[in-house]
Amino acid sequence: MPTTAHHATPHTDAPTWTVGDITVHRVDEVPLPPQTGPWLLPGATPEVVAQAPWLQPDFADEQRVLRLASHSFAVDVAGLRVLVDTGIGNGKRRANPAWSNLNSDYLKRLTQAGFAPDSVDLVVLTHLHTDHVGWNTRSDGASWVPTFPNARYLTTRTEWDHWAAVDMDEARRQMFRDSVHPIKDAGLLDLVDVPLDGSAIDIAPGIRLRPTPGHTPGQVAVELSSNGERALITGDCIHHPVQLVDPGLGSCVDTDPAAAARTRRELLGSLSGTGTLLLGSHFPPPTAGHVVPEGDAYRLVPAANAPAREISAT
């Protein structure tokens, strides 16, 4: 595992949180269109949203339609630069019109946060869905090449084996051709074994992968810990804070809805009241918060951004 130290000053507008000595930046790609919520979480009706007034105005609009976003988390751990998920990507043909042929300034934002593509050491892919792997690669005009050529890309063996065995439709095959196979062909992809019994594994100092199956079989959440403080990056085991109101609310693209609901309930129960910072992979701003009990379920208490600070290591 690389341990290169880097020195850069992050863009001060990048939303940032600290977890002990770990710094986490949210790197925005695009807000997702309003129709995303009713499609992705069909059970999260306006009537359900109305049961939790705290969801508005940040997490739902005036009509109680969910707000969602696509972003990455860029994590600095003692100079090791780690990127968790890589969004949708630019210039890629996708079945979802909202995701097709994007032209965002994601790489500019990433660089402004202090993570120039050549400086990234490790890319953690929580799972292999289109909106989590897109910036794995970029076009060089002739082909798709790794965006982060000096990084190791990491996903679970369970996730890889699942998709290798599935008869994928053409849209998913296209995504693998332009965003997954090029990093494998370049020798940059590592598969890690994460037990499905709930045990987390260490991948770097202060960073662990926690199995969160259900949305996909090999999906993981990313745990961060430093100096007694802890955070968890959700991946898609929790798409939106409305699922704290009802952990049984599932996504239309969960491979195993019952397992996904079990994962959510167990995860939220383990986080509730602990002070752990929850960082939602699709949560709109303010994105981060603490899980607290409310009635028979939970709510998210938003956390403030930390002041931007220099990324450095000795």
Rank of each mutant, 00 (worst) to 15 (best):
L268W: 06
D121V: 00
A151T: 02
L232C: 09
D190M: 06
E170A: 13
V75H: 02
G187H: 04
P247K: 01
V301E: 15
K184S: 09
H25K: 13
D256A: 00
D254G: 05
E62K: 15
L55P: 07
R210F: 15
T126V: 07
P284F: 06
E310L: 12
P38E: 09
I311M: 11
S225V: 03
S100G: 12
S251P: 08
D246A: 10
L267H: 02
L32P: 06
L80G: 09
T156N: 02
T12K: 14
V65Y: 07
F73L: 14
P195Y: 00
D21R: 12
P241A: 05
H129K: 10
V242G: 05
D28E: 07
L232V: 13
H239K: 08
L279M: 01
E266H: 09
V124G: 01
D85E: 15
L80D: 07
A116P: 11
I88G: 13
A297C: 05
I233H: 04
H129V: 12
L154Q: 06
G289I: 00
D28Y: 03
R138T: 15
D13I: 02
P241Q: 08
G206P: 00
E47R: 14
A221N: 11
G273I: 04
L107Q: 13
P31A: 13
V123F: 02
A8S: 14
A98D: 15
L32F: 09
R157A: 11
C237K: 05
T255C: 12
R262H: 14
D161P: 10
E266D: 14
W163C: 04
V48Q: 08
L224A: 02
G289R: 00
L83Q: 11
R109I: 02
G280K: 02
S72I: 12
G91S: 12
W160N: 10
Q219N: 05
R172I: 12
L188C: 06
D254Y: 06
A113W: 01
G89H: 09
T212R: 01
R138N: 10
G91L: 12
W39H: 13
D256G: 00
T137R: 02
G235Q: 03
E266P: 05
L278T: 04
A259Q: 12
H239G: 07
R109L: 03
M175F: 10
A313E: 05
D236C: 02
A165M: 11
